[in-house]
Design a protein around this nucleic acid. Structure first.
Lengths: 339, 339
DNA sequence: AAAAAGCACGTTACCGGTAACTCAATAGAG
DNA sequence: CTCTATTGAGTTACCGGTAACGTGCTTTTT
């Protein structure tokens, strides 16, 4: 019973095979459920596996035949993020269901950090990668291409992906919302965002938004893009900033729901009522919005669907099955009563 | 230029070594920065690494000498959770800094799911594991012990951990909050929680809360524990339920801040004012609380500190350095104006 | 100046599986 | 009844590193 660490269950396939009275190869076949063994043999092997407490060694298996790697690398901006947390959860769930292991990374919106992660992860000989966004360094692209490894870029719609892209059409989201806000009679419209260091995340929605305004001969009256992570507080603070600069806004489009909710609270704290004094719209269907006294006008998205679709597309590619290179995850403008 | 997948950069250490005019072993030493080579030799090797685009193979390295494994398995209830997302983020960050790779899992509060994950992850011969909670199946414990692998159990304080425990003292959090609420003059106090299928998560706070009430000759007036994931909406809905059953509560202790915020919104929707009509307290210092018009009375915790501490303790153990078996992550009751 | 120690490498032997091949026994086809 | 698949195995070679040890050569010690 001595807790001899030396004794680290070193039972391997050979010992299992010997105990079962078969060859190592036959035991291997049984455990992989490959064909070429009788029911009787299978029972003998599995009995010994159980008795000896054999724990398979996937490191050795992957080493021995690299094409059987079941490691998938997934890199997102942050692991603590309601949007990407949900992506990660559904991605990991879908991958696990197919027998793949997820190795994670957080690039914190820095392509250089992502590059370091990619270098690292490639040394694990993964079967595939999932990256977020399509802002990568040249080295990152070259590394991935030179390894000839399947990659899914998620989050943004990307019409010329490295390999596969699964994303939202952020431009259209912004475009649609602008037309909606204009249609509700607003004229002096501002934009509040964050992550200014990370032009990828909300920037396309802002672009679509501005473009739609332009097409209706309206300009963005003001914008405030914080050099900070998105969140409730960033929305609160950003709204304070923009309204102090430009007092006569009658609507604000926020980078996402978290910021929009922060904005609503700022307005309330100043005695402004929404939507009478100012209209507010977000993006992303955050759970918090469901408990607000008002229904937030936002774009409903399914980050779960995104993650699951990305995982499934990657697995199909890994298996050599046909896959669409560009997959759009649907979004829907959900009118509430904050505009 | 044909995208021959066959051509998957198969340059290995031998080729690098040959190109540099040294032996494989010398090249290996250079790349691991082990001693036993001259500056001149190092430059020659690194030059060829660069020129040939050599990508190290950690699968082979781990296979060749298992004690150099740099895989750490981390299993939490959900990847999409503001509390555990932050834990994961800080854990992963700390591990990455020391050159370890995180393999994740989500057990969804099911010990059986955790067991499946453990079986799987052990086949990757990780250097260590981080589990959340201390509700594990017998098989899980046996597997871990038989592998003699370092393990850190996080989240709950655990005085007899499998190996190392890093956690909050949830019992004391609840105990302290009860005394505080009583001290503010409340008498008819309820509790609203969720995850009823997962007795581990909030149950200890509830126990401490009830124990403190008892010691002041007060009983919990009512409780509502939803069979659902914690969140804003669960708090909203749970509050509706408990107040419909027991109308005269003058304070509610919630499992966490997300639920407390949901509760505040429910009260507002019913025209009740907080804290005049009903007092509300939460746990966990959620960011959303910072934008509420009122400061939520809650227990401030640092999930970042928890994750970082856990990662560092695990690495110390892996390296054979001395570590405390039980580490308490501090918490602090932060009075607001919702009680 | 001889012995001991240090340094910069090279050699050898694995680690634990799996692909590819071989082979004997049996079943089915003609 | 012979000849050809099929089935259920075993054999061999190899994946790409690293630990442990061996070997000259140079430096230091006494």
């Amino acid at each position: 019973m001595a807790a001899k660490n030396k004794n680290r269950s070193k039972v391997n396939l050979s010992e299992v095979a010997k105990a079962a009275g078969v060859s190592k190869m036959t035991a291997s076949r049984v455990l992989r459920n490959a064909s070429g063994f009788s029911d009787e043999t299978r029972d003998k092997v599995l009995e010994q596996v159980e008795r000896l407490g054999y724990v398979p060694n996937r490191i050795a298996a992957t080493f021995g035949s690299e094409q059987t790697s079941t490691i998938i690398g997934v890199c997102v901006p942050h692991l603590s993020s309601s949007l990407f947390g949900a992506v990660l959860d559904s991605t990991n769930g879908a991958l696990a269901k197919f027998g793949y292991q997820t190795m994670i990374g957080a690039h914190e919106n820095s392509p250089e950090t992502e590059e370091m992660w990619v270098k690292n992860i490639l040394s694990w000989r993964p079967a595939g990668l999932i990256l977020s966004g399509h802002t990568h360094t040249r080295t990152t692209r070259e590394l991935i291409k030179s390894q000839g490894i399947p990659v899914v870029e998620i989050w943004n719609l990307n019409t010329s992906p490295i390999d596969i892209s699964v994303g939202f059409n952020h431009f259209d989201c912004g475009h649609e919302m602008a037309l909606y806000i204009l249609g509700q009679g607003h004229q002096r419209i501002g934009y509040v965002g964050a992550d200014s260091a990370a032009p990828g995340m909300g920037a396309l929605r802002r672009k679509g938004f501005v473009a739609a305004l332009k097409s209706s001969s309206t300009d963005l009256a003001a914008q405030e893009i914080l050099n900070d992570r998105s969140g409730f507080y960033a929305g609160f603070y950003g709204t304070e900033n923009i309204l102090n600069r430009v007092g006569d806004l009658d609507a604000i489009y926020f980078q996402d729901d978290a910021m929009a909710i922060g904005g609503i609270f700022y307005c309330q704290s100043q005695g402004m009522s929404v939507p009478e004094d100012i209209g507010i719209a977000g993006w992303g269907s955050m759970e918090a919005a469901s408990v607000l006294p008002q229904r937030l006008t936002t774009t409903v998205v399914s980050t779960q669907a995104l993650g699951k679709t990305a995982a499934e597309a990657l697995i199909s590619r890994v298996r050599g099955e046909p896959v669409n290179d560009v997959i759009i995850t649907p979004t829907r403008l959900a009118p509430g009563n904050t505009i």
